[in-house]
Design a protein around this nucleic acid. Sequence first.
DNA 1: CGGAAAACATGCGGGTTCGGCAAAATTGCG
DNA 2: CGCAATTTTGCCGAACCCGCATGTTTTCCG
Lengths: 258, 258
Amino acid sequence: MSTEPGLRERKKAATRAMLCQAAMRLALERGVEHVTAEAIAAEANVSPRTFHNYFSSKEEAIVAAHFEGAHGLLESLRARPRDESVWTSLEVCAQELIDRLRGDASPDNLRRMFKELHTIKTHPALTAQHLNALHDLTRRLAEEVASRTGTDLDRDLYPRLLCAAVGAAFMAVTDMWVHGQTDRDLHDLLKEAFALLQAGLPIPSGMDTQPAAPSVPSAPSHSTGGSAVTPAYCEPDATARSVSPPPDIDSSRDATDQ
Amino acid sequence: MSTEPGLRERKKAATRAMLCQAAMRLALERGVEHVTAEAIAAEANVSPRTFHNYFSSKEEAIVAAHFEGAHGLLESLRARPRDESVWTSLEVCAQELIDRLRGDASPDNLRRMFKELHTIKTHPALTAQHLNALHDLTRRLAEEVASRTGTDLDRDLYPRLLCAAVGAAFMAVTDMWVHGQTDRDLHDLLKEAFALLQAGLPIPSGMDTQPAAPSVPSAPSHSTGGSAVTPAYCEPDATARSVSPPPDIDSSRDATDQ
DNA sequence: CGGAAAACATGCGGGTTCGGCAAAATTGCG
DNA sequence: CGCAATTTTGCCGAACCCGCATGTTTTCCG
């Protein structure tokens, strides 16, 4: 009884990868609306019926290509030290997710990732798939969080809420990166998001119009101490850590936010 | 130049409502997989082509029925006092959303809402549409939040992150309600979610395994002061405020969480 | 008020999407 | 190697969607 994947399983995984990569490639080349399941199958050298054995729609395939990087992320969380704060563990994993989505650090990969995210966030059908994938991922992460915090997934709100918030942060950060007006890098944005969440999302100072709610924390007391929040993730190539929008595709920055 | 909707506009809105309500009704009666666009159109007494003028898919129609309650929620936020904390405003609106999704307070409506949510969260295609609708809503809410907090939607992470987190809270709460093991009511769960978010989602006490991150707030110092967080929403029928899972549909509580 | 324009409903047709079914091909095991 | 299990593939049909053109209803204007 071998735990090594057999030829069958390896070929299945390879076919799946070929299909979703073909889907993404064609979508970026031709535009999502112009891609058909038939063309994807042909590009991957399988039959259309086989394509539908793997994916129920082309959108699913396209998003699957992008989200391949998320594969194994739950295992990464599981591998974190159990005595570590779940906040730290989750942040490390979220930052790792960004690196996985990008692949090797290079301007080309950065450009590709931007294009992929922009495409996904510009087409509602793709956005929906992406949100679904993220929702599924955070649901699974919540199980591990429950285990680590001694909470009950079905009775305590904490694990679900924490992971949902982390997923939301990921989404907000990538939305901002793609649609906003920022040249900050994704890691930096995500770090800020985690700091803000942990601080309880205080209303920006100077704009505190709350006359009667003393329960809202005043200023971010620890958002400046961010160095303690991203401790343990070792980026293989630390010099190329920066994940900012590529400078030569500013033309993508149209008013797609409408 | 009248601002009153003309007959045309009124008939359009009525047709749209008829269509999505028919979609939801049939989905609940027959199961989502057994509903066709043709049947929905027939149920609403229009042609299939007309159905597709309104919705590009049956899933969109089904979720639109559920999310009809969200219509006008942005206007509700805009109507909140501008000197109120956005936290308060958002919580009031989130609570209002629950009431809108439920409709008039009655055991039947409660049962229907549970069924609707359960259906949506059990079918991936519906979940995706639901997530998308929520994502769009929070995106629009973020504009108002930016306006109220003097932040810039495209340059500051805060408004997007706050609203994304609120959306995530809504999702986590409803997921918990439908799939978890709780008989707490939705309003109560949502209140807890807001308190937890504002407290920075502290790791439950006794489970604080964080050895080296002093930046994490210790105990929920204001999560018990929740009475200041839900101040101003006047529920029309306060005696039936409870939104807990209907007791006679425990059979829906199968292992759909897998 | 009547007629024209605009908006919406509808029918038709066609390309695409999906999945059931069965046969063919590939892989794993004794 | 033979056989069983698994995967691929071809075929088919129901359903999905949307472009296009025509008919109907509402709105606008003289």
